[in-house]
């Protein structure tokens, strides 16, 4: 089954995500502002994807894109500078992280790698990131995903 892979840019890096229909991509900028709630009027939590993954990756752009990840009781908007390409990729071009590295990571934010030709792009798991964000913000209230 072919996968749809989106590549997105932060200030310093390029990441890839596997497209999921339930994750909305919204343009933010000018008159279009991101509210505090999602389309279903649930609380919307915002986070900058760049700085989340690399503390030095700070965006200075005015218009952003948001991946709005719907969860059970709220949504998480993960912001990036640009969403550039959408690729239909074969299984061969997507591979999980090498186990040695995968086991040494503190979270499951990176699902694997997308390796078109000689390049290598990290494939992010937006749900894991959103859930981790919810966990971090909701931890004092004992809420779980």
């Amino acid at each position: 089954m072919p996968n749809l892979v989106l590549t997105l840019q932060t200030a310093r890096h390029t990441y890839a995500v596997i497209h999921r229909p339930e994750v909305q991509i919204r343009f933010i900028g000018g008159a279009t502002a991101l509210g505090t709630t999602d389309s279903r009027n649930r609380p919307l939590i915002k986070a900058d994807l760049g700085t989340l993954l690399d503390y030095q990756d700070i965006s200075d752009q005015g218009s952003r894109y948001a991946f709005v990840v719907p969860l059970r009781r709220r949504s998480v908007a993960l912001l990036c500078d640009a969403v550039s390409e959408m690729h239909t990729v074969d299984e061969g071009e997507l591979s999980p992280l090498p186990p040695l590295l995968y086991h040494r990571l503190p979270h499951r934010w990176v699902w694997g790698v997308y390796t078109p030709s000689e390049t290598l792009i990290l494939v992010l798991d937006l749900y894991e990131i959103a859930l981790d964000l919810i966990r971090q913000t909701a931890q004092p209230h004992g809420e779980t995903a």
Binding site: L97, R104, P106, H107, E118
Partner: peptide
Amino acid sequence: PVPGAPPSLPGLINQRGAI
């Protein structure tokens, strides 16, 4: 570089399809 990786493992390279 892979977010969260230790200093001894600074990242990944793709060498002719091998990660």
